[in-house]
């Protein structure tokens, strides 16, 4: 069965919704804010993500195709199987995303998505250029080995990404109660983008917020979050946005006078970890600000 590239197909819809949100904010005078250079950076990050996908997509696809040769079953492509694959892949997304915040090697790639101090539909497009280097594709291996085809796994992953576009907005306050209970929503995801101590490392969900509730990382939105990074960037340059954390991490890893264990820790411990305790992790920031 052929699966469409839903992300590419959705680009016209993304543009229409983005323009609609800009006009809505302008006309209503509420529902978020756009800043010119911030928007340009987000769009260029989105473009770079597409280019990186074209240039490096063969790595993940080749890996998945190779794995497919070792599958336990071939589950076919019925609607039920696609639906099951979608739910299981969303669970996979939750853990990849959680690792993206808790392991500096993966954070180096994901950080750029959080680097805007704004929260609007353009922020959704501020995507990584370096996902391939995180090797997080291995978390899809169980799905493929169990018998979900690589094409299907990539398709449901694309649907997951498309779903997440619309939740990057302040124009929508809350969805109906039943929806907020089960699904990831603008309210839940605003919390995820907050740099307020109590909001750090929460609400990792892609589509279903139930994973956060199940694994203890759910925090409801109370006051409006302050968006961005613990230390916000002082540049709009997309190259700096894309690579700054990789450079910073490599500088730490190869700093003189460290033990091998400390060098690995700089790559694998949470962002903010340091061998001499001179920086703070999100856990330490949260503990310091706990009521």
């Amino acid at each position: 069965m052929d699966f469409p590239d839903v992300v590419m197909l959705s680009i016209p819809l993304f543009i229409v919704l983005l323009v609609a949100e800009i006009l809505w904010i302008r006309i209503k005078g509420r529902g978020g804010a756009y800043e010119t250079r911030d928007t340009a950076t987000s769009l260029l990050m989105g473009l770079g993500n597409v280019v990186a996908g074209v240039a490096l997509g063969f790595v993940a696809y080749g890996f998945f195709t190779w794995l497919w040769g070792f599958r336990l079953f071939d589950l076919g492509s019925s609607v039920l199987v696609i639906a099951l694959c979608f739910v299981l892949d969303d669970l996979r997304y939750y853990w990849v995303h959680r690792l993206g915040h808790r392991v500096r090697w993966v954070w180096a790639s994901h950080v750029n998505h959080h680097s805007s101090q704004h929260y609007n539909l353009s922020t959704a497009l501020r995507q990584t250029w370096t996902a391939t280097f995180t090797l997080m594709m291995v978390l899809r291996a169980p799905l493929i080995l169990f018998g979900f085809s690589p094409e299907m796994v990539l398709f449901v992953g694309g649907v997951n990404l498309v779903y997440q576009f619309w939740i990057h907005t302040e124009a929508i306050d809350k969805m109906p109660r039943w929806f907020e209970m089960v699904m990831n929503t603008p309210s839940h995801h605003r919390v995820h983008h907050g740099r307020d101590p109590k909001y750090l490392d929460t609400n990792y969900a892609g589509v279903f917020i139930i994973w956060d509730k199940l694994f203890g990382t759910f925090v409801p939105e109370q006051e409006t979050p302050d968006y961005g990074l613990v230390q916000n960037l002082g540049t709009f340059n997309p190259l700096r946005v894309a690579f700054h954390e990789w450079l910073s991490m490599l500088r730490d890893i190869f700093a003189p006078g460290l033990t091998l264990r400390q060098r690995f820790a700089y790559a694998l411990k949470p962002p903010g970890w340091s061998h001499d305790g001179s920086r703070k992790t999100s856990d330490q920031i949260k503990a310091r600000n706990a009521p």
Partner: peptide
């Protein structure tokens, strides 16, 4: 930084 700030 546009309508926001950065500090160092």
């Amino acid at each position: 930084m546009g309508d926001r700030v950065a500090g160092r």
